[in-house]
Design a binder for these strands. Structure first.
Lengths: 202, 202
DNA sequence: GTCTATATCACGATAGAC
DNA sequence: GTCTATCGTGATATAGAC
């Protein structure tokens, strides 16, 4: 039931796993509680199903953009823009993941330690390759990734703070474009990525 | 009772407001539940007391380091280092704040919209002044702040992820120093801060 | 002020009619 | 498969002895 999962994503994002009640989840899906139990058994299994849908989606951006064939000015910028678009379009997914991490990742420890760890190792090698070829500074690649995630996801996870500070009810497209360009600039200039034109003279 | 608040900070950080139970909180403080109710009345008021202690501490770093008299190479680097030290030494405070934001900031909306908003406006003016004097690039100052917070606090809030990816049980001092230098580099180079020596030739 | 014992209620989960 | 009505548990909060 895709419809139940979409509704549950909203509720879990706002209240967290503990905070969300089966009554809320059922109301959001427009069904009696018993139906949710019929489909998913327990609240925990419903939550895990939502979470797994998010995880499969999570690393696609990275493996699309952070590849050796690209110039880092293209690859890193594209990755940041893709992650920012994600924060814009599916903020609830980001928030559920953030809540899970915040409370010690009890449901996704295995994913973090195995699948994510392996992917990050591969991505780090790509970034190191760019540095070795002189296309960018020799920055620590793993921490660069941590900080790209932090910057891009803060616009989904902590958007209440951003809206409050900006004094806006919602973050509009113009503001979000400014945010995206700021993050792109911080990442590209911060890691000393050479401009694309310099590639020809290299 | 400072001792109860310190113990409660740990429990709230790990389980969140909803997830923490009075039984856990009392056990952490080494007291019967009834005593916590005697001192604070409700779980909510205990939580708010913990939270307020964190907020008063929160903005001190910024107003110490981000002042017009400093060169941004000094001010921004010092601020980042201070925030990183905070994430290292009081990660639970950061996590409670993060959880509060993640769930819509129901207890601190006023603080965000008034006190934090005013402070950020002032800090933004300082950064704009640095840009206007040619000491750094004309980056959007408010988004620069959002991203500094994101990068520095990710090392407290999401340290499970960082430990899992690094394959370490705990983040050691060497790793944390690497993280700190990476963030400092991203911020200084990313916002085009001129080297300190250039000040004399300006 | 400190604690034990308990009232009250909301939650996840299920039984059982349809 | 779908729903109503309800069970049992564990939570916050309090009463009342010391």
């Amino acid at each position: 039931m895709q419809h139940i999962l979409a509704a549950s994503e909203k509720v879990f994002a706002q209240h967290g796993f503990q905070g969300a009640t089966m009554t809320q989840l059922a109301a959001a899906a427009g069904l009696p509680k018993a139906n949710l139990h019929y489909y998913f058994g327990t609240k925990e299994r419903l939550y895990r199903t939502v979470l797994e849908g998010i995880l499969t989606l999570w690393l696609d951006d990275a493996t699309t953009w952070l590849v050796p064939e690209r110039h880092p000015a293209d690859g890193l910028a594209g990755y940041v823009r893709a992650k920012m678009a994600h924060s814009r379009l599916r903020p609830d997914a980001s928030r559920i993941f953030a809540g899970e991490l915040l409370h010690g990742a009890p449901h996704i420890m295995l994913y973090l330690g195995i699948e994510l760890r392996r992917t990050v190792t591969d991505l780090a090698r790509v970034i190191e390759g760019w540095s070795a070829r002189g296309l960018m500074d020799p920055i620590n690649p793993v921490h660069l990734l941590f900080n790209i995630w932090a910057m891009t996801q803060t616009y989904a996870d902590f958007d209440v703070q951003i809206r409050a500070v900006l004094g806006k009810v919602s973050i509009d497209d113009v503001e979000f474009a400014t945010a995206t360009e700021t993050v792109v600039a911080l990442v590209l200039k911060g890691s000393g990525v050479r401009a694309l034109e310099e590639r020809k003279s290299a």
